[in-house]
């Protein structure tokens, strides 16, 4: 893991010292704010609240305003990580420093992950506001955020890999969007196929169903394992990709 800490700090620095992270966070918070605004408008007129279709379920997964940033933010955060280093040539000074490849890959993923968490952090305020208007089950909040974190972490891992596989940020963001949006659409297949293998596969990878579960306080270990493997596998491949540059 040699070199993890300085690279992690530098990547975080690079995200926040350029307008990159700030611009992304502004857009992200605008969308989430809009989501919350609609939520309050919607539920202000609702007299009878269903237990599993309350404001929390709305906020964590029943609107496009939740999924849009969830799918878009990770690719945008990771697109620069390797692609920009390769374009600018700085990858050469990085790889010739006494650092291990897993250290570099993990540092880049962690930097984007921390930025992702920072982007989500202000949304806790919405829950606090909700709490002032009524009851909030904090365990449900915790499981919802667990879902957001797991999905984000795995999408970021995919994003880092895609960034390593392309020389331009633009291609990187397109590739990782293709994968994350593709995965989402595959999950929608759950509602297209009634039964059979296709239905099982689609429902297993369905981000929609996963968030529906997480936002109701259910933590399905299959989903946790799915996302953990979706973090480990791309990062592992990414290490191999970076190593392969030496032998290309």
């Amino acid at each position: 893991m040699t070199g993890f800490w300085p690279i992690f700090k530098r990547d975080l620095f690079a995200l926040f010292v350029t307008p990159m992270a700030w611009a992304l966070m502004v857009i992200f918070l605008l969308l989430e704010g809009l989501n919350f605004y609609w939520l309050t408008v919607h539920f202000a007129n609702q007299v009878d609240l269903a237990v599993d279709h309350g404001p929390l379920q709305w906020f964590f997964g029943e609107t496009v305003l939740f999924y849009l940033p969830l799918l878009m933010l990770p690719p945008a955060l990771t697109m620069r990580s390797f692609a920009e280093e390769r374009r600018a040539g700085t990858i050469e000074s990085l790889l010739t420093a006494p650092v291990s490849t897993p250290g570099i890959v993990l540092a880049k993923w962690c930097a984007s992950f921390v930025t992702y968490l920072v982007a989500w952090a202000p949304t806790v305020l919405y829950i606090v506001i909700l709490r002032r208007a009524g009851e909030v089950d904090w365990r449900v909040v915790a499981s919802s955020y667990l879902g957001v974190i797991l999905i984000g972490a795995s999408f970021l891992a995919i994003g880092v890999l895609m960034s390593a596989m392309s020389k331009s940020q633009f291609v990187a963001v397109l590739l990782s969007l293709a994968v994350t949006v593709g995965l989402f659409i595959l999950g929608i297949g759950e509602f297209v196929f009634d039964r059979g293998l296709a239905h099982d596969i689609c429902s297993h990878v369905s981000i929609w169903s996963q968030m529906a579960d997480f936002s109701k306080g259910q933590i399905d270990s299959r989903y946790v394992v799915f996302h953990l493997s979706l973090i480990v596998l791309p990062l592992f491949i990414c290490v191999r990709v970076v190593d392969s540059w030496r032998w290309g």
């Binding site: 070199g3 800490w5 300085p6 690279i7 700090k9 530098r10 620095f13 690079a14 010292v17 350029t18 600018a88 040539g89 700085t90 990858i91 050469e92 000074s93 420093a97 006494p98 650092v99």
Partner: peptide, 18 residues
């Protein structure tokens, strides 16, 4: 190749740590 968004001192500090 250098990182354009860093200051000279910061960059050398980073490289020294690395």
């Amino acid at each position: 190749p250098l990182y354009p968004e860093m200051r000279v001192g910061e960059y050398l500090q980073f490289r020294a740590e690395l």
